[in-house]
């Protein structure tokens, strides 16, 4: 595929597209499960953007092996810092999602519905 657009820019557009899809889903859907799925989509989009921002033109993964010799590591490796941050972000995103799902189960047990229209007492 020859598009002329750098691969990291394509990844960034994809990531921001996912983020916007998630934001739109969070704002328009009334079902708590769909809101949670939209939130996860948004988080995934931001993770993709962060990973893409660490790409260096023509570089490879920062793992020293036969594809990337010890001497050329400084010249041909991508930025490892965003990758390390995204590992953290994925784990924290998982934790937040798990807590949100637990709250969804509790809310369903309280009102027997997952529509946020039923939970008006916490509306300001």
């Amino acid at each position: 595929m020859i598009t002329g657009i750098p691969v990291s820019t394509i990844l960034m557009i994809t990531g921001f597209g996912l983020t916007l899809t998630g934001l739109w889903g969070m704002l328009t859907h009334r079902n708590i499960m769909r809101i949670i799925i939209s939130f996860v989509l948004m988080g995934t989009g931001f993770n993709i953007v962060m990973v893409a921002s660490g790409y260096v033109t023509g570089a490879t993964a920062p793992i020293i092996d036969t594809a990337l010799g010890l001497g050329e590591a400084g010249a041909r490796a991508i930025d490892p810092v965003p990758s390390a941050l995204v590992v953290t972000a994925i784990v924290i995103g998982f934790s937040v999602t798990a807590v949100m799902l637990a709250f969804a189960i509790r809310l369903y047990a309280a009102k027997k519905t997952l529509s946020i229209d039923a939970f008006t007492e916490s509306k300001w």
Partner: peptide, 21 residues
């Protein structure tokens, strides 16, 4: 705006270079 201003890195930032070496 972010995508418009984004240019792909041509070399590692100093911190990343430090880590990689």
């Amino acid at each position: 705006g972010v995508i418009g201003d984004y240019v792909e890195l041509q070399a590692l930032r100093p911190l990343a270079r430090h880590y990689v070496t």
